[in-house]
């Protein structure tokens, strides 16, 4: 265990990381919460975003903003591939995601040409903003992340209020019904998967620029982090009702996750154990409500009739 000062030093970095990963969580939210699909493409498309970003910034000498946009586009295409496998070829969503994810591993290696690329000598949006504002890197990353996240939440809030967005929500709710009401559920799913992974790709590129390297394995376990963040957001903000606040809760969940992670590391645990801890967090968060319910039902039983 380090001293408490070290923890406070680590916190700004953790928060900024949480916000940047939070953009990926928004993507996961679309598939997991709205479409009711666990989309495993995420692990691949997150790394894809990072790899595309690194390739453009380091090898091609392009600007960091252009790299972000291209990474978003790459994620969009990756999601569309999963969507096509799922809708056109009737492959179950989980399997379609796994197929794209595993294919992306090779594609990402091809994109970068090696397993990791440092971005030490090039400009990133963060280094540029640090130069302009004079604030520390972690603050800049946090503020930039918050601005982007808020813009995206506004976009998603708008999108899910449109005819298309409502078709997406209804598709996750009751596919038979919405097809009987004349909406093409296959197109809806394809679009949702593509938009979701576009956000994931963008998040991958942002994380790549903030940590100043891209790694072939940077997306491993991203889906679990995404689920953990959503679940944490749900637990903390279960009472919020509006769609916008729920998206906000997901991003805050991501921040909380990374703060927990910082604390765990500060407690002296191995960083490699983090995946185990993530899995435990998700599993606990998913099963605690179930057990509370069962416990309540069991104990509210009385043979004599109502006690009230």
């Amino acid at each position: 265990m380090g001293n408490i000062g070290a923890l406070f030093q680590a916190l700004p970095g953790a928060v900024s990381q949480g916000v940047l990963w939070g953009i990926m969580v928004l993507g996961v939210y679309i598939t997991f919460k709205i479409l009711d699909i666990a989309d495993l493409t995420v692990d691949g498309s997150f790394a894809l975003g990072g790899c595309v970003c690194a390739l453009l910034v380091v090898e091609k000498g392009r600007g960091p903003v252009e790299a972000l946009l291209m990474a978003t586009l790459a994620g969009f295409i990756a999601g569309a591939v999963t969507g096509i496998l799922h809708t056109l070829c009737d492959i179950p969503a989980i399997l379609a995601g796994i197929l794209t994810q595993i294919a992306l591993w090779s594609i990402n290696l091809r994109v970068m040409g090696k397993s990791n690329t440092p971005l030490l000598k090039v400009d990133t949006i963060f280094s540029k903003l640090v130069a302009v504002s004079g604030m520390p890197q972690s603050t800049v990353a946090m503020v930039t992340g918050i601005v982007i996240a808020v813009l995206l939440i506004l976009f998603l809030y708008w999108l899910f209020g449109t005819e298309l967005g409502c078709t997406l929500r209804a598709t996750g709710n009751n596919e038979d019904m919405i097809r009987a009401l004349g909406r093409n559920t296959k197109t809806a799913k394809l679009i949702a998967l593509a938009i979701s992974n576009a956000l994931v790709g963008l998040s991958g590129a942002l994380v790549c620029q903030s940590q100043k390297y891209a790694d072939i394995g940077m997306g491993t376990g991203a889906i679990v982090i995404g689920l953990a963040a959503i679940v944490i957001g749900d637990v903390l903000f279960g009472w919020v009702r509006s769609f916008g606040s729920k998206l906000m809760a997901a991003v805050v969940g991501s921040v909380v996750y990374f703060v927990i992670r910082a604390i765990v590391l500060w407690l002296g645990m191995d960083a490699n154990d983090m995946k185990l801890i993530s899995a435990i967090i998700v599993a606990l968060a998913l099963c605690i409500p179930v057990f509370i319910n069962k416990w309540r039902n069991y104990h509210s039983y009385s043979e004599e009739g109502p006690t009230c």
Partner: peptide, 18 residues
């Protein structure tokens, strides 16, 4: 099967109206 449980009554009607 005929309604979306997670959506409001008026949202369901709005979907049907279109």
């Amino acid at each position: 099967k005929g309604t979306a449980a997670g959506m409001e009554i008026e949202e369901n009607l709005a979907l049907a109206y279109r």
